[in-house]
């Protein structure tokens, strides 16, 4: 009797968890993991992928989401952060970086909103140089203070009192990759999902 009761108990708790997994992970996996990427969405280049690694390493996701909410749900549309996100936008994203916090603005389409390389560089070096009152941390270790810049290096255009006498601040390879990644964030193409929906209606 005790054995049967224990068996029912263990079977029961096992079943509840597996049922939840099947519904929330298993079935979505079958349903949407096979979707094709939109034609306009390109695979990350090696440089962009490296920049994405820096984005993960420095934990940008803890303050910046990468998902745009639809009309009538928040003010994402009014703020012109882009059209509502769909699963196909994330086909190449691994790990996903949807985020759950917006201490700072959404970055799903930052590559469209802010195209200036020098703005991004200064912003990463010291956010308060370009955004007054920003609470974003500075990332000085992504930059190097040097006597003179090399031929291909990006030199930051900083106020005089921020640069030591006779030196220049240049971006490291990591900063360049990170900016490259940020500029690649562009999901402004037509929603592939919407096209499918229209087809079904016709």
């Amino acid at each position: 009797m005790m054995f049967i009761r224990s068996f029912v108990f263990f079977f029961g708790v096992l079943a509840t968890l597996l049922l939840g997994w099947a519904a929330l992970v298993g079935i979505p996996d079958i349903m949407i993991s096979e979707i094709d990427p939109p034609d306009e969405l390109e695979r990350y280049t090696a440089e962009e992928a490296f920049g994405r690694q820096i984005y993960i390493r420095e934990g940008c996701v803890y303050c910046h989401s990468q998902q745009v909410r639809p009309e009538g749900f928040g003010a994402d549309q009014e703020r012109l952060w882009g059209r509502p996100s769909v699963p196909a936008d994330y086909v190449f994203d691994r790990p996903h970086l949807l985020g759950t916090m917006r201490t700072g603005p959404d970055l799903m389409n930052i590559g469209v909103r802010q195209t200036s390389v020098s703005w991004h560089m200064e912003h990463l070096y010291d956010p308060r140089l370009v955004v007054e009152g920003s609470t974003m941390p500075p990332y000085p270790w992504l930059f190097e203070v040097k006597r003179s810049a090399g031929p291909d290096e990006f030199v930051l255009d900083l106020p005089e009192d921020r640069v030591p006498e006779g030196k220049v601040v240049v971006a490291t390879r990591e900063a360049e990759a990170l900016v490259e990644y940020l500029l690649s964030l562009d999901r402004s193409y037509d929603s592939p999902q919407r096209v499918v929906d229209n087809d079904e209606e016709e």
């Binding site: 096992l14 968890l17 597996l18 997994w21 929330l24 992970v25 979505p28 996996d29 949407i32 993991s33 699963p87 994330y90 086909v91 190449f92 994203d93 691994r94 790990p95 996903h96 949807l98």
Partner: peptide, 20 residues
């Protein structure tokens, strides 16, 4: 069970977000 499915499963894009 939970820890192993989460740490060693392979999922794509938004499914990974759901799993997460």
């Amino acid at each position: 069970l939970l820890y192993l499915t989460a740490n060693f499963g392979h999922y794509q894009g938004v499914v990974e977000a759901g799993m997460n």
